[in-house]
Amino acid sequence: AEKTGIVNVSSSLNVREGASTSSKVIGSLSGNTKVTIVGEEGAFYKIEYKGSHSYVAKEYIKDIKDE
């Protein structure tokens, strides 16, 4: 089941290729951006990003809701 969340950062949140802080950064999301969460892996959520799937750190996503 998909969930949505809100990016909870003051500046921007790195979007990564994989579920690791050493993964390549492929983009960023600004605070209060709504994201669609399709899964989770460790400390990361797998999200829909620009037509494919990428990862963001869970600690920076708030207001998780089931869609």
Rank of each mutant, 00 (worst) to 15 (best):
G5C: 07
I37Q: 00
Y45M: 03
K34Y: 10
A1M: 14
D63S: 09
G31D: 11
S22N: 12
V9M: 07
G42V: 03
N32Q: 10
L13D: 03
V35M: 02
Y60V: 04
S23L: 03
E2A: 15
T36F: 12
K24T: 08
S11Y: 10
E17N: 08
S30A: 14
I37A: 00
K50C: 12
V35T: 01
S52E: 08
S11N: 12
E2G: 15
S22P: 03
N8M: 14
V7P: 03
G18I: 06
H53C: 08
A57Q: 14
E41V: 11
R16N: 07
K62R: 12
T4L: 10
L13R: 02
G31T: 13
K58H: 02
A19Y: 04
E59F: 08
K46Y: 05
E2D: 10
I6D: 02
V25H: 03
A1W: 14
E59L: 09
G5V: 05
E17K: 06
I6N: 04
K3H: 08
K3L: 10
T21W: 15
K3Y: 09
A43V: 08
S54N: 06
N14A: 15
V38A: 04
D63R: 09
K65S: 14
E48G: 03
K65H: 11
I26C: 07
E67W: 08
K58V: 04
T36P: 02
G51I: 02
E48Y: 11
F44K: 00
N32W: 10
Y55D: 00
V15M: 06
S54M: 11
K58A: 06
R16E: 01
G42E: 06
S11I: 12
V7F: 03
E41I: 09
K62H: 10
E59W: 07
I61E: 01
T36A: 07
K65W: 10
I47M: 01
D63G: 08
L29A: 02
E59P: 05
E17A: 10
V25M: 04
K65D: 12
N14C: 15
L29E: 01
S22H: 11
I26V: 13
V7N: 02
N32S: 08
N32Y: 10
G51S: 06
V25L: 06
S52P: 02
S30V: 12
I26H: 04
G39H: 03
A43P: 10
T4Y: 14
I61D: 01
E40A: 06
V35Y: 02
R16L: 15
E40N: 04
Y55H: 01
S23W: 03
S11G: 15
N8P: 05
E59M: 11
I47Y: 00
D66M: 14
S54H: 09
K24R: 12
S20Q: 06
I26G: 01
K62P: 03
N32K: 08
I37S: 00
V15G: 01
S52Y: 10
K24Y: 05
V15H: 02
S11Q: 11
G39C: 06
A19F: 04
G18P: 01
E48N: 10
S10V: 13
E2R: 15
E2K: 15
L13M: 06
S30N: 10
S23I: 02
G42W: 03
E17V: 07
T33H: 06
K50R: 11
I47V: 05
S23Q: 04
K3W: 15
G31M: 11
V7S: 04
I6M: 08
A43K: 09
G5R: 03
I64S: 07
Y45P: 01
N32T: 06
Y55C: 02
G39R: 02
